[in-house]
Design a binder for these strands. Sequence first.
RNA 1: AGGCCCUUAGCUCAGUUGGUUAGAGCGCUACCUUGACACGGUAGAGGUCAGCGGUUCGAGUCCGCUAGGGCCUACCA
Length: 875
Amino acid sequence: MSEELSKRYEPATIEQRLYAFWEKREFFKPLLDAERPKFSIVIPPPNITGRLHIGHALVNTLQDILVRWKRMSGFNTLWLPGTDHASIATQLIVDRELTKQGISRFDLGREKFIEKVWEWRESYGNQIIDQLKRLGASADWSRLRFTLDEGLSRAVRHVFVTLYEDGLIYRGIAMVNWCPSCRTAISDVEVEFDERASKLYHIDYPLAGSDRVLTIATTRPETMLGDTALAVHPDDERYKDVIGREAILPIANRRIPIVADSILVDPEFGTGVVKVTPAHDKNDYEAGKRNNLPQLQVIDESGKMTVAAGKEFAGLDRLDARKKVVSMLGDTGALRDVKDYSHSVGFHEKCGTTIEPLISRQWFVKIEPLATPAINAVRDGTIRILPQLWEATYFNWMENIHDWPISRQLWWGHRLPVFYCANDHMTVATDAPTSCPQCGSTEMTQETDVLDTWFSSGLWPFSTMGWPDDTPDLSIFYPTDVLITGFDIIFFWVARMIMFGLRFTGKAPFSTVFLNGLVRDEFGQKMSKVKGNVIDPIDVIDEFGADAVRFTLAILASGRDIPLAKSRMQGYAAFANKIWNASRFAMMHIDTTLSSAKAIDRDCLSTVERWILSRLNETTRTVNRTLSDFRYDEASNAIYQFFWHEFCDWYIEMVKPVLLGRHGTEADQQRAKRVLLEVLDRSLRLLHPFMPFITEEIWLKLGGVEPSIMVAPYPVAEEPLEDAEAERMVRAVQAMITSVRNARAERGFTPKDRFKLYVRGEGRDAAFFDTYAYLLIDLARLTEVIVNGEPPAGAQHDVVEGFAIAIEFPEKVVTKEQLERTERELEKSRKELESLDAKLVNEQFVRNAPPAIVQGAQARQAELRSRIEKLLQNQ
RNA sequence: AGGCCCUUAGCUCAGUUGGUUAGAGCGCUACCUUGACACGGUAGAGGUCAGCGGUUCGAGUCCGCUAGGGCCUACCA
């Protein structure tokens, strides 16, 4: 048959053509058929701002492997793709673009700015989708969703209104994490802490009406302008007498009360006196509420000092104000000491700005009623989180969860469905009211705040399927089966989907969460532009092919961090080339197509054929089992080992004598061709989820019944193919061949030199060695094999897999290396035998160990004894 | 501060409930242009499984301690 294949596999020439073929034939699309077993999965929507990075490549490779495996295994499979509008990230990017052009978003105004963002999204927002296609992702692009789509926006409004009506969304004034650069509130999970070198300033506060001073310590002296109290511990003997008195706040010269607070103050820390700034510190805020202290805001939304901080500070940036305060304190002698200090500082994860705790009016989700069912769902096994150790992290966070601030003072995103009339009456409704239900005013304005991006992505598994409508997609594909994502968004996203899913659909949105590790560089370092160790997936796809990249990611992914090295990808590119050439070899000989080939008569197979089918069957079993456990590493490794080291290294070599007509009958040859086709076909199908492109390219040439390998059935293990006896005998042949090659190399013979081999075997085994002597002759390059003959003196003896063999060399050339080697082997065998002997005379061992272990030890003991005896003859 | 994890070949890592001789990829050495493949083949070197102690007939695997490294969460005046 067969067209010519090029000598080397060239991924670039086939990948895009095959992907276009799959898309055109709509193989990615599931059926709207509720009767068939389904498998569904939703993509973690990448941000529209994103370019594909290696983390996306990983998570989407893992999803695609699962999806292709399930699809081939007969499931009606949906992989639903989409993108996230990424409120802050996108706004930041477009903002920066505008800044480059010398425009501020405030010049444009909200509406014009949002138009710009949509334009930006049209141009760049789907780049990442095209990149996912390069990877081979078999998602159903006809269902592509975007979190700001009308349908998804409707779901968002519906959820907001429902939660509001249920009393689970409220508006309130509270201290939040504020980003002075983005000028918005953010949630706790969006704050990243980093240990920073800083200073601890010790400042004297005079006690009013006395000469005494109270020394406090602070890392943020500028906030003292907003101090409204000092606090000490009520049981601290040193300060019992000052409780209730007043201190004089330096610089501002205000009198502030001294209060007792056992929660805020740790008497062991510092001087035991704490300044209290209720408007600018979380703990002080709480302490202020406990002690009825006024809140004095001295820093504004942009991080600048307010008028309340004093005339000379108003308008200064908080850091400049700090310098000024320190300098003034120094001048007045109130600055007692400055110490180097290291403490953790919160930064906005998106822009890196230092977070400023501020009191502001925000919208919150009351989280406890949502969290409790979400905790239970994981506890009772409705949802399982893998690797399981993440469950503890999930519980820990969920059990200490705080209300979720969901409003953001941004422009790009879902505007809250909250409307105010001219008389400031508030209406919460999914559709904009034309007039105020309370006063009839027709001057309605919508809340300017938008929702946290994660509010909409929290609805992703069902909003993408048309919820809140009752759609076929929802009834067939929801809840989904598996969620694959990075552990870094377990709180941002996974927890919120579970909470929302349970609340609004009554069902867990997925039954399994698989959290993949972080891709690092080959030395285990995080990839970062600064370090310059970033691997761009598109670059490596260009260099090694998508299949090699995917295979590398899969074989390294066991749930933990992945140290990715280019050398690794190079290795699997070589594997792809190996597959290509093994197939090339096979196709040079195969003369039927898969669809026209006759069924294999399993009753008249050769031992070698039964062996390779048995090995392939075992591999098939392993791959299916490990994939269902998300052990991508074991699955891909099993195929790799089988294909390269059993199929290529041994089977193809063993079948060559028959295939090339050096041995056997015409019928043997025909059968060999048929089995070769069978093994290649099954191997390719087994491998397809991991390496979709190369397997498709080759498989199409084999002429199967199905139009594509991706819709051909996935192999499953079949018990009749297991053949322990064939495996035992071929193992023996392999060991004999290895032994001969080894001895040849040791004695300094070339591969061209041929020898006589003596093999000892009984009954059926002897008959086997007679029949398959040609294998030994061909692969070990022998002149002949003598079964149960008497080897001449000077032959080299060995015992492998329980069979005694001897090699007759042309003359007795015993090299020093060889003697040393024999000595080493003897030493090893003796040592092992020694420990085995000790074990077997130990009654405890014989009594307590399982019989199989004891029998194994005895068998090994016998083998070692005979091996030692034979090795001694070589000296 | 609390919790979790890691330490196995030169490098990066597997090693499932304790059980024969601890594996892989890359790298390294020697030989081989054998009619699928030099992105190849064959053979080989390389490990006191971080250290110490314990449980057990038996420990890389279980327990404790020590040392080093990483991650997460919360607070740090």
